[in-house]
């Protein structure tokens, strides 16, 4: 990379960092002004709704397989079902993900063998 590309990369890195850090500082000041720094009550409602919907949107986007096809969609469905079933039993984070990935992989392999 030449000098201008290095500067561009640093500007992108700094800009991305500021997008993450500055809103935190703004909200801190907002919470201090409201003098209830340990409460979510000072948060605007739209912001508390936006957070879970952003996670839901990430989930929706991540559901689309890299190579969409019948087998990958079926594997996604069964892997997702398995994830939710294991979550209902364990209420943990790691085991449902492990089980979901395992079932997803098994379905992909089985369907490939059958084909």
């Amino acid at each position: 990379m030449d000098k201008s590309l290095w500067l561009l990369m640093l500007a992108c890195a700094l800009g991305t960092f500021l997008l993450r850090a500055l809103p935190l500082l703004w909200m801190r000041r907002h919470l201090v002004r409201r003098s209830i720094s340990n409460s979510t009550e000072a948060m605007p409602l739209w912001l508390t709704v936006l957070a879970p919907t952003m996670i839901a949107a990430m989930f929706g986007v991540s559901l689309v397989p890299a190579h969409p096809g019948l087998s990958s969609w079926l594997a996604t469905l069964l892997g997702g079902l398995c994830t939710i079933l294991v979550w209902r039993r364990t209420r943990s984070l790691g085991w449902p993900v492990c089980a979901g990935v395992t079932v997803y992989g098994l379905v992909v392999v089985l369907l490939r063998l059958l084909a």
Partner: peptide
């Protein structure tokens, strides 16, 4: 090649657990 195809399912599975 299969590893790269299967492992990324960890992300939707994780989001699902966080959303449930």
């Amino acid at each position: 090649p299969l590893l790269g195809e299967v492992m990324p399912f960890a992300l939707p599975a994780l989001f699902l657990v966080l959303l449930a």
